[in-house]
């Protein structure tokens, strides 16, 4: 008796049915399924309908495919050549060379970019530095021009005689302060420094180029000589110390 209650073949008999349908079931599996077919009408019907379906597909194949000739597979010569070339170049040296040629090209490109960047930066800095120098030069020129007035410029003479004779005439600030307090009254130039006549060359000292460039030019147009320690001031200080030493020596001798 066939059992028609078996509706779903997916659970247990799908695979045995397919194997049996295509004749690929083993001996034990075949016997088991044939025994099941005697009692299962659904499997019997399913197997019959699957047989019809297979026949339909087989007919399609016979009618349309089996008549067709097998196409001639032609591998393009370019691909064969490519393959051959590729296999020829598969030595370790060629691989190494390919890798390093690529890396070398990359490194060269990076180096070129770096050189260009450095060059551009250098040029930009130089251009800026030139501008600064030009600005400083122009500013200094203005300072010099303003410091040395046309009238004074003709009469100014550098104090050559004092530089050679004084060994200790360092232009340090403490020395200047000491000189202003101690040796100022002795210098006759200081007395006339404030309201000195224009043609007096000792009253105006030219300011050297590069000094006080960041300050106003008019403030340093003409510096009175009284505010600047002269080389003779430090000489006086040296003389005083020598005198004190002489006094101590005299005391000791006495």
């Amino acid at each position: 008796m066939l059992n028609n209650n078996h509706k779903n073949l997916n659970c247990a008999f799908a695979e045995p049915l397919i194997s049996y349908l295509y004749g690929e079931s083993g001996a034990a599996e075949k016997a088991e399924f044939e025994a099941h077919l005697k009692t299962c009408a659904s499997c019997h019907i399913e197997l019959t309908k699957f047989g019809f379906t297979r026949s339909a597909v087989h007919e399609w194949r016979v009618e349309e495919f089996d008549k067709l000739a097998t196409p001639v597979i032609e591998l393009p010569s370019s691909s064969i050549k490519t393959q051959t070339v590729a296999t020829d170049s598969r030595s370790w040296f060629s691989d190494w060379r390919q890798i390093f040629s690529f890396k070398l090209a990359l490194a060269m490109s990076a180096l070129a970019i770096a050189v260009v960047l450095v060059g551009v930066t250098f040029m930009a800095l130089n251009f800026r530095g030139d501008n600064i120098d030009v600005a400083e030069k122009t500013a200094n020129d203005k300072v010099i021009k303003t410091a040395v007035s046309p009238t004074v410029e003709k009469t100014v003479e550098p104090p050559k005689q004092t530089v050679d004779t004084n060994k200790f005439a360092a232009p340090d600030l403490p020395v200047k302060i000491v000189n202003q307090k101690t040796a100022a009254p002795k210098s006759p130039a200081i007395k006339v420094s404030a309201n000195a006549p224009k043609n007096n060359s000792d009253n105006v000292v030219p300011v050297r180029a590069g000094q006080n460039t960041n300050k106003g030019n008019q403030k340093f147009a003409a510096v009175p000589k009284s505010k600047i320690p002269s080389l003779t001031d430090s000489e006086d200080e040296e003389d005083n110390s020598v005198r004190l030493a002489d006094l101590f020596d005299e005391i000791e001798t006495k």
Binding site: A14, I18, F50, T53
Partner: peptide, 27 residues
Amino acid sequence: LSTVKSRLYTGLKQLRMKLERTPVEIV
């Protein structure tokens, strides 16, 4: 292997259902 069989079973079943909807005699 079981996947192959189950797919083939499902495929044949769906194909049979499609063919049954057409009144063309299946030889």
